[in-house]
Design a protein around this nucleic acid. Sequence first.
DNA 1: CAAGATTGACCAATCAATCTTT
DNA 2: AAAGATTGATTGGTCAATCTTG
Lengths: 147, 147
Amino acid sequence: MVTPGPETIALWTRLMTSSRVLLERVEGALKAAGLPPLSWYDALLELEKAEEGGLRPFALQERLLLPQYGTSRLVDRLVGVGLVERRPCAEDGRGQELAITAEGRAMRARMWPVYAGELVATVEAALPAEEAKRAAEALDALIRAAR
Amino acid sequence: MVTPGPETIALWTRLMTSSRVLLERVEGALKAAGLPPLSWYDALLELEKAEEGGLRPFALQERLLLPQYGTSRLVDRLVGVGLVERRPCAEDGRGQELAITAEGRAMRARMWPVYAGELVATVEAALPAEEAKRAAEALDALIRAAR
DNA sequence: CAAGATTGACCAATCAATCTTT
DNA sequence: AAAGATTGATTGGTCAATCTTG
C-alpha cells in the first residue's frame, strides 16, 4: 500500500491550515468593514479585467474554478444588488454576457484596501519576497500535478 | 495605501488555487469510492489518536479549527451513523466525552488508502521531498503570522 | 458572569433534473 | 446529442440566542 512520506504529510497539513487561516483573516476583515465576501471580489475583478465585452458565465466559471451552478447563483446575488448586469448574448442565443456596473467597480475599489492590508500584514510579515517567490513556484507545481 | 508586492500576490493566488484543487481531488476520490468527506476523516483521526479517554468537544474543535457549532453539527452526524459515541463527562457536568467506535475505526481505515493515494499521486509526483519540506516551512511561517 | 455546548432560523452550496440553442 | 445555463429540493454552514454548569 502506498504511504506518503513525512514531507508530503507536512506539506499537505500546512497547505490546508494556512489556506484556511489566511482566508479566515481576509474574510473576517471584510466582514468587520461591512463588506461582502471574497468570492464577490474575485468575480468583480474578473469582470472588470474583461472590460467592454464583459464575460460569458462559462468563462467566469473557468476563471473562478466554480461549478456551473455555483457561478449561476453567485451572479444571481451580484445582479440582485446591482453590482453586475446580465445581457443577452449576440453570437450565441443560449448564453449571456455579464458586465460589471459602476456600483460594482466602486464596491471592488472599496474592498481592495482591506484585502490588500491583510495580505501585507500576513504574507509580507511572514516571508521575504525571495522566499515567497520560491514557495509560490512549489505550489504552482502542485497545481499542475493535480489537474 | 499599502500594496502587496507581486511575490505576495503570486503566493496568495497559488495558495488559494492549490488548496482548492488538491482538496477537490481528495474529496472527489473519496466520493467516487462511496466514502464520507475529509472532515469526517479528520475528526475520526483525532478521536483515534486520543485513545481511551476520548476528547471533549472543545478540544476536538481546537484541533480541527472549526467553530463551536460546526463541531457540534459534525459530531451529530458522526454519532448519527454510529462512528462516534457521546458520553457524559465525569469531571465537568457541562461537557461530554467523545469516543470513536469500532465502526469509526473501521471507516477511518477504509478512507486512508484512498486519501493517501491522492496525496502520493499529486504532492509526490510534483515535488521532490526536499522541496516539499522547504515549502512546508514557508507555509508554517504564514500560519504563525496569521494568528 | 464566563465557559461548554446545543439549537432554530436563515443563507449558501450541492445534486440531479430541466430547458434552450447549437 | 452536446454545450450553456438555470432551478427545485436537499444538505451543510453560519448567526444569534439559549441552556446548563463552573
